[in-house]
C-alpha cells in the first residue's frame, strides 16, 4: 500500500487503471429477511404461530473494482442499496453471496484487521462521546487505534486545522450544532490514517457553507492519496469530490464511469450532473 502511495507522488505516477486494486467486488448479493405482518386481527394472531417471510434483494449482483487513490461517488434512490454496500465493505454485514475484498482481505472474515485500515462515517450518527468535550473523543479514539503519541498529535493537529474545529475541542459534544458535530466526526474518521474511507451521506442536513468546507476537506484528503467511497444524494458533493460515479438502482449497478461518460451515455449536452442522472433514472424506470 505504502509503495503505491509513494509512487503516486513521483512524476512517473502510473495511470489510474494500473494502480493496485483496493476494493474488489464481484457478483455481490445481499438479501434481507422481512417478516410479514397480518392485516386482520385473525391473521395477526395466526402468524404468531406460523410466521411468513419475504426476502428483499437489497443487492442483486453488484461488481466493481476501485483502485488506490480513486475517489468514487455512489448514488441511487432511497433504498437502492447504498448503505448495504457500505456495511458489507466495512465488515458489518455478511454478504449473501459473491466475492468482496478490501485491501486484500474479506472484511467480514477479518473484521478487526479491516477496521484498522478503513474509516467509516455515517451521516447523522455521531461517534462523539455525548457528554464529554470533543478532545476526549479524540484521545480515546487515538488509543483505540493504537496510534503512537507523535502520530496521534500530528494527525489530530492537522485535522483540527483542516476542518477548523480548534474552538470546539473543549465543548461537550451535546452542545454542538449539526454542522459542527459533522466536522468533528469527519476528523475522527480520518484520525488513524485510514487507507480507504467510506462516507454514507456525510453532508445530510447541512447548509451550503458547511457543505463547502467538507467538500474542500475531502478534496484535500483525496490529494493525499486516500481512497474515498462516497455515498450521497447531493450531486454537487460528487461532482466536486469524486472522479468516478457508480449509479445503483434496485441492487444493481446501472452505470459506472466518469462524470463526462455519464453525460455522454444519457446523450445530453446537459452540463449539470443532476439533470443527467435524472434522465438516466427515467430511462431505467421505463426500460
Amino acid at each position: 500500500m505504502n509503495s503505491t502511495l509513494m509512487s503516486r507522488r513521483s512524476p512517473y505516477a502510473p495511470r489510474p487503471d494500473e494502480r493496485d486494486p483496493v476494493i474488489v467486488v464481484e457478483e455481490l448479493t445481499r438479501h434481507y429477511r422481512v417478516r410479514l405482518d397480518g392485516e386482520r386481527f385473525v391473521e395477526k394472531v395466526s402468524r404468531f404461530f406460523k410466521p411468513r417471510y419475504r426476502y428483499v434483494k437489497a443487492l442483486d449482483g453488484v461488481s466493481f473494482t476501485i483502485r488506490a487513490g480513486e475517489s468514487v461517488g455512489y448514488i441511487g434512490l432511497n433504498g437502492a442499496g447504498k448503505s448495504t454496500t457500505i456495511k458489507i465493505l466495512c465488515g458489518v454485514l455478511v454478504p449473501t453471496s459473491g466475492i468482496v475484498t478490501v485491501l486484500g482481505v474479506e472484511p467480514y472474515r477479518h473484521r478487526t484487521r479491516n477496521a484498522r485500515r478503513i474509516g467509516l462515517m455515517m451521516g447523522q450518527r455521531t461517534q462523539l462521546l455525548w457528554d464529554l468535550p470533543v478532545r476526549e473523543s479524540f484521545d480515546l479514539l487515538g488509543r483505540i487505534y493504537d496510534l503512537s503519541r507523535e502520530t496521534y498529535r500530528a494527525n489530530r493537529d492537522r485535522l483540527v486545522e483542516a476542518l477548523d474545529i480548534g474552538d470546539l475541542m473543549d465543548t461537550p459534544a451535546r452542545m454542538l450544532s449539526l454542522g459542527q458535530k459533522t466536522r468533528c466526526d469527519l476528523a475522527l474518521t480520518f484520525l488513524h490514517d485510514p487507507a480507504v474511507v467510506f462516507l454514507d451521506e456525510p453532508t445530510i442536513g447541512l447548509d451550503i457553507l458547511a457543505r463547502e468546507k467538507i467538500r474542500d476537506f475531502l478534496k484535500a484528503e483525496k490529494k493525499r492519496g486516500v481512497t474515498i467511497f462516497l455515498a450521497s444524494h447531493d450531486l454537487d458533493d460528487l461532482e466536486i469530490v469524486t472522479d468516478r460515479v457508480m449509479l445503483v438502482h434496485r441492487g444493481r449497478i446501472l452505470f459506472d464511469g466518469s462524470h463526462e461518460e455519464l453525460r455522454r451515455v444519457t446523450g445530453g449536452s446537459l452540463g449539470i450532473l443532476e439533470d443527467t442522472v435524472r434522465r438516466f433514472y427515467r430511462e431505467a424506470e421505463l426500460g
Binding site: F41, K44, V45, R47, F48, F49, P51
Partner: peptide, 12 residues
C-alpha cells in the same frame, strides 16, 4: 394487545 403477537421467540 396485537403488537404483542409480533415477537414469537420473545414470547417463548
Amino acid at each position: 394487545f396485537l403488537r404483542g403477537f409480533r415477537y414469537r421467540a420473545n414470547y417463548c
